[in-house]
């Protein structure tokens, strides 16, 4: 059913190789990402998430190992690497610092223009993505430097979405935003995937955020791939996750504890809504089938 879109084989990368400050940023990563998956990437600071991402669109070339897109090595023809970057769209941490044009419109147009699309198509795409990121057309003529931080970030993300990549990768899209801003970005990611059917990877430091929208979780630990599985499967390893400095969502923890105490509840609870249902179901059963 689901076919593999992006694959890495024994991918390893060493920064400043051969000097006194050499760092093994990722080691031996073997990964298969299927089509239309929404993957949440998590791992402690410095675990190699950003480094891994930069390999997926060929900004970095592995010290050893390969990256396959649709079964083809992305480095097969070096001159085609730009085409790979149009298919795998990456938006970095704090993308608001990449804006440079005098209007939002022109800035979003940068990617599609580089692709060599015609004017009308670019215009159509811009008017489409600006809604994806929860802004409206009145923003298009504003200067990106006059926007608030959260708005700038959304414009930057729109700039990558406008290339209509098959895989959209967002590095910490929620970093430094308030709860409402995070919520907006998360639902924006979810909507985008549902509307376009593309594959999305997003890095986050919050298990809560990931469990809310992701279909799969990718856990990095000390430059290695620890888990890549469904949300439910990964949360079964609560203790291991804690040893990696990560935490499962508080709600899930609560239900795991209830389960431990002998209550008959499902433990795949990540949202308040689901928690309410579970608890009501438990209460209607009498609550205490210990």
């Amino acid at each position: 059913m689901n076919s593999t879109l992006l694959e890495t084989k024994n991918l390893t990368y060493v920064y400043s190789k051969g000097t006194s400050s050499q760092v093994h940023a990722i080691r031996d990563i073997c990964l298969k990402i299927e089509k239309s998956e929404l993957v949440g990437v998590i791992g402690h600071t410095g675990s190699g998430k950003s480094t891994l991402i930069q390999h997926l669109n060929g900004l970095l070339k592995g010290t050893s190992g390969t990256v396959l897109l649709d079964g083809k090595d992305i480095w097969e023809k070096k001159s085609d690497i730009r085409k790979v970057r149009f298919r795998v769209g990456v938006c970095f941490q704090y993308p608001e610092y990449q804006l440079f044009e005098d209007t939002v419109y022109k800035d979003i147009a940068f990617g599609p223009t580089n692709m060599g699309l015609d004017r009308d198509e670019i215009d159509r795409r811009i008017r489409e993505v600006i809604y994806y990121v929860g802004l409206d057309e009145s923003y298009l003529e504003k200067s990106p430097f006059d926007l608030s931080g959260g708005e700038k970030r959304r414009v930057a993300i729109a700039g990558v979405m406008a290339m209509q990549p098959e895989i959209l990768i967002l590095d910490e899209p929620c970093a430094g935003l308030d709860p409402k801003g995070r919520e907006t970005i998360l639902s924006m990611i979810k909507d985008y995937r549902e509307k376009t059917g593309s594959t999305v990877l997003f890095v986050s430091h919050s298990m809560e955020d990931i469990s809310k929208i992701a279909t799969k979780v990718l856990v990095m630990n000390e430059s290695r791939l620890a888990y890549y599985d469904t949300v439910d499967e990964v949360f079964r390893h609560a203790d291991e996750l804690r040893n990696m400095g990560l935490n499962i969502p508080r709600l899930t923890k609560l239900f795991l504890m209830l389960r431990e105490k002998g209550y008959d509840v499902n433990t795949n609870v990540y949202t308040l809504e689901k928690a309410k249902q579970e608890l009501l179901a438990l209460l209607s059963k009498g609550g205490t089938d210990k």
């Binding site: 970057r85 610092y97 940068f110």
Partner: peptide
Amino acid sequence: KITNAQKARGA
């Protein structure tokens, strides 16, 4: 960082 970000948009 900026170079990477722009390269990612096909610069």
